[in-house]
Design a binder for these strands. Structure first.
Lengths: 337, 337
DNA sequence: TTGAAAGCGCTAACAG
DNA sequence: CTGTTAGCGCTTTCAA
């Protein structure tokens, strides 16, 4: 069933059917109704692929993410989906598993698929190696709009939607300072990525602003992602050396997991022996009434905002580069209020 | 840049370029190399959309899921991605938010996009209402292979990959019985869906097989999904009425959350006052050394298996309907070992 | 307001 | 082994 068949059934030409499909105003009301009726009756749906070839772009949006298994990106997808559900666009999803090579291939793939736009959380981010450069080059040569999600891209020409990493880290650290703690530590990973860099900046900025010295034995930073187990081991070490601070900023959820696991084993009471603030809510800690302060970020909103920004850039071609920061709310448990 | 341009640069015809692209054996080695070289140099990638129109189907696979925000489906996507990463197929993702209407629209959308196959977790499942019927009708009229994920579809002609719901529930219940408990309860939702129905069957079957009577005051079932809060309230009620059993089977992770929250508040000690087994691992409960027994299911493998089954059905057109059950491992905490 | 015709970039007989 | 040709199903001038 093609527009040819519909045209024959309606006794009109293909062009007219096409006009009806595309809501062209230049169609007689009677004709439009007749064609619509036949399309309804026959359950006709135009081939998106043929439309795509004709229009030079598909009504798909490429979504390129490092992973989907964790709690964060699943919610981001949910938000993107929410923003696209009443549009003609469908999500073309690629996961890079944080590998630059897969990212490169996925980008090529999206190019081939003639997506109308791209939502991207790059795996390369701040890396300076060869493949990262290639990726950035490819990105800058893209003919379609791109909106970055959660991770900025150095020297990029694209807008983006981000968590308020530095402000969040600042707020969290500030809360600890205001509570009167002097020995304040931090666990921050990915500082070679914008996301980690900013969280680290937020932390040190707050310490500086309040004149609290950053003591090295309480601060752990790592260029790359830290696994829960690595944090666990490192914390155990710190505990054995008597280096657990009065209060600590935990850079992300995985870090928090590893940290809590270790201190609980070592008999160090959270909210008492050590006061913690981290990124992201944990329902489980809530359930067991664990004293847990955190920065709540709205990941669904992040995805939704990014998708809307992309949609806007389709019609508004001014090309002005916009950035949105999705705020985090600081949720303090009783011991810090 | 099209195959026309490549053809001109290489001094051959479009057909030859097409043959090279599609690895046709009927190309002279010299010619192939020349064409390949030019494609490399010019960074040429054939338009997937034009290929699709010509071949009558796109190299995309429709993935239709109820949601992506939770821990389960994110992992399923991860598995699908894993299976597809070295194939020419890309994921076209639609989330239905468990709404039959969105599911219907998404299905139409995938039809239009001429996907090569579909991976589906239906929202309608066992429902018997009008839209569910329409969805099933649409599905049966699909010309492309479909593989069901996690939720079976009554009277469907399609294969699928499922969690071992009934065997899992049986194993879990059996473990409680073998430990000598007589007052055994259960919390099971979605019993109007295959998934809940099967878990309920597994539970009652085990009770039957061991001659333990099912006592109503300890068993809560619900046709629809139970929210954590509903379970929490119901458990509080049970606790106040003195109806907390010695042991209990918890039908899913959300139920477990609500149940634990309530008993912890009521001062009932898990692993001591009441012994619990549920579906799905919880890292948080692990971290805090919470006595927690569970059925571990491999959601990534589930997605991966489904995608592989779909790929297989592309080449092997025998149309034999296959079903895979991904086994769960029973992980018992100290109090039940 | 409509139709004819060309073309989007590719594949796939068919002929050579 | 290679080129010619005719589509795939739609959009979009251009004329009428």
């Amino acid at each position: 069933m093609t527009i040819r068949d519909i045209a024959d059934l309606a006794g009109v030409s293909k062009s007219t059917v096409s006009r009806v499909i595309n809501n062209s105003p230049n169609v007689n009301e009677k004709t439009r109704e007749k064609v619509m009726h036949i399309m309804d009756e026959t359950n006709f749906l135009p081939s998106a692929i043929a439309q795509g070839l004709s229009r030079h772009y598909a009504n798909t949006i490429g979504v390129l993410l490092p992973e989907t298994g964790g709690p964060f990106f699943g919610k981001v997808i949910q938000g993107i989906n929410k923003a696209l559900i009443d549009t003609p666009y469908t999500i073309l999803l690629c996961c890079t598993e944080n590998k630059a090579e897969y990212e490169m291939r996925a980008l090529d793939n999206l190019l081939q698929q003639k997506v109308s736009g791209i939502l991207l959380t790059s795996s390369s981010d701040f890396c300076e190696n060869e493949s990262a450069r290639r990726i950035r080059k490819t990105l800058n040569s893209f003919q379609v709009p791109i909106v970055l999600i959660d991770r900025a891209l150095k020297n990029s020409m694209w807008g983006g939607v981000y968590s308020d990493n530095s402000a969040g880290a600042y707020m969290a650290t500030e809360a600890l300072i205001k509570k009167g703690f002097k020995k304040i530590g931090a666990f921050i990973s990915d500082i070679s990525l914008s996301i980690g860099e900013q969280r680290y900046k937020g932390f040190t900025q707050a310490m500086d602003d309040y004149g609290i010295p950053v003591e090295e034995e309480f601060v752990v930073t790592e260029k790359f992602p830290l696994s829960m187990h690595e944090v666990y081991l490192k914390t155990c070490e710190m505990a054995e050396a008597g280096n657990i601070p009065e209060a600590i900023f935990l850079g992300n959820g995985i870090i928090a997991d590893g940290f809590y696991k270790a201190i609980l084993e070592k008999g160090i009471a959270p909210g008492k022996d050590v006061h913690c603030v981290g990124f992201d809510y944990s329902q489980f800690l809530d359930i067991i009434h664990f004293p847990y302060s955190y920065l709540e970020r709205n990941s669904v909103l992040l995805g939704e905002t990014a998708a809307k920004l992309l949609l806007k850039s389709f019609s508004d071609l001014s090309g002005i580069r916009q950035e949105y920061i999705i705020p985090s709310a600081l949720r303090l448990d009783g011991s810090l209020q």
